[in-house]
Amino acid sequence: MRKLFAPLLVLTAVMFAYAPVVIANTRYESTMFLVQKIFYFHFASWMAWAAAIGVCGIASAVYLFRADPRGDRLAVAGAELAILFGAFGLVTGSLWGRKAWGVWWQWDARLTMALMAELIFVGYLLVRKYGGPGAEKLAAGMGIFGAATTPFIYKSVDWWRTIHPQTSVVRNLGETAPDMYGAMLFCTVAFLLLFASLLTVRVHLESRRAELDRLYLALEDQP
């Protein structure tokens, strides 16, 4: 992993550097004009967010059933990144809403739900911090259940009458506007790579912390 990290970082940086060019080259959307360009990062950040939640849920289950501390480190990194990318998605979504709907915050179902999902992972960090000794396990439960509830949150959007662009927009984009579709894919890959790099760094930090704790205890054991 360490060998792969430098190329990963370089690739991510290059893709982010090139992303504005890709986005600038797409056509102007007929009603939203310039603001529509937010969409490329908006959509991409939600993809990274979904990946972060998936990682947190699966890693929590691994920690819970295998008692492998690496699972716990991965889960906490996933939860923090879910909050980060979720916040990014909410801000870009809010900017979009200002232009499209004329208000910063519309009680649109998907935005509301995203905020709720955001709360779950803030709750995850809270239980880690204030849950007392052994809170990692409680947090693991939260991680699994949080990841499991997200699809339900997502699904209820389609059923609640919503003003959010429907998910089918993304599907149709491939046929109606291939340049937009390409830019969207490009940004999604860039965000997923950013997610992977941040995850690696965060997990590494957490392992270092564990190593430090171990050394500290070993030092105490010295006569």
């Binding site: 000794p133 704790d213 205890l217 054991d221």
Partner: peptide
């Protein structure tokens, strides 16, 4: 049995 640096049993 450790909790970070706090040890319950060593």
């Amino acid at each position: 049995r450790h909790f970070g640096r706090r040890r319950a049993v060593s």
